[in-house]
Write a protein that binds this DNA or RNA. Structure first.
Length: 200
DNA sequence: GTACAGATTGAG
DNA sequence: TCAATCTGTACT
């Protein structure tokens, strides 16, 4: 099965659809001669401007979140708690502040190289939005990066199909401030039984 | 200029 | 359960 870089069309859907479609796809991060490849196993959807948990709630635009408004297929990355980067993929058309937070990936080529047999050890690398950015060496310079054009990061379809019965829906994490209505939305998606999903 | 909250994490 | 840590944002 040939690896196929995702094209613009893939991203031009609403955030919830994109969050589900991204499960089982592969993020490829090229750094010098090395490649970090991670299978996406957990995502969350943020649907501004109506979503109170979204940074673009109420149509707010600031220097920080303007990348969120870009056409689908761009990166919106920002620093949280002064320490951790959060990687988001924008969804939908230009001007629609919808995005998908990548919460966890399964490292593909890292394990064989370092011969790490212990899944628990490997798991510590990427089982959380802050950690996976650390692993892939992502930072502010990737903000507004175009995933369909970039030479250093993109997403591939490797022919893997995730059945809908394998997709688990859950409440989003860390957004208590948004109130019960938005907090209880089942907009977090992950692959059932995958050990790299964040939390326990 | 100051104040303060936050889409997290890991140690206890 | 709780604190580290610092940028963006909204104030004065």
């Amino acid at each position: 099965m040939a690896n196929k870089k995702l094209s613009r069309k893939f991203y031009l859907v609403d955030g919830i659809t994109l969050a589900k479609k991204l499960l089982g796809k592969y993020i490829v991060r090229k750094l010098d001669s090395r490649k970090f490849i991670g299978k996406i196993v957990e995502t969350e959807a943020y649907i501004g401007p109506k979503d109170k948990a979204s940074h673009s709630f109420g149509g707010k635009i600031t220097p920080r979140n303007q990348a969120e408004y870009l056409e689908g297929g761009h990166i919106y990355i920002y620093l949280c708690y002064g320490m951790y980067w959060q990687l988001n993929i924008t969804a939908n058309k230009n001007g629609k502040p919808e995005c998908v937070l990548i919460r966890a990936v399964e490292p593909i080529n890292y394990s064989s190289k370092l011969k790490i047999k212990n899944v628990k050890l490997l798991r510590k690398l990427t089982s959380g939005p802050g950690k996976l950015c650390q692993w892939m060496k992502l930072n502010k310079s990737f903000n507004t990066e175009d995933l369909t054009k970039s030479k250093r990061i993109w997403i591939e379809d490797r022919g893997e199909k995730i059945k809908s019965s394998q997709i688990v829906k859950a409440k989003r994490i860390g957004i208590d401030y948004a109130g019960n209505f938005w907090k209880n939305k089942l907009w977090r998606f992950y692959i059932k039984d995958n050990p790299f999903v964040s939390k326990k």
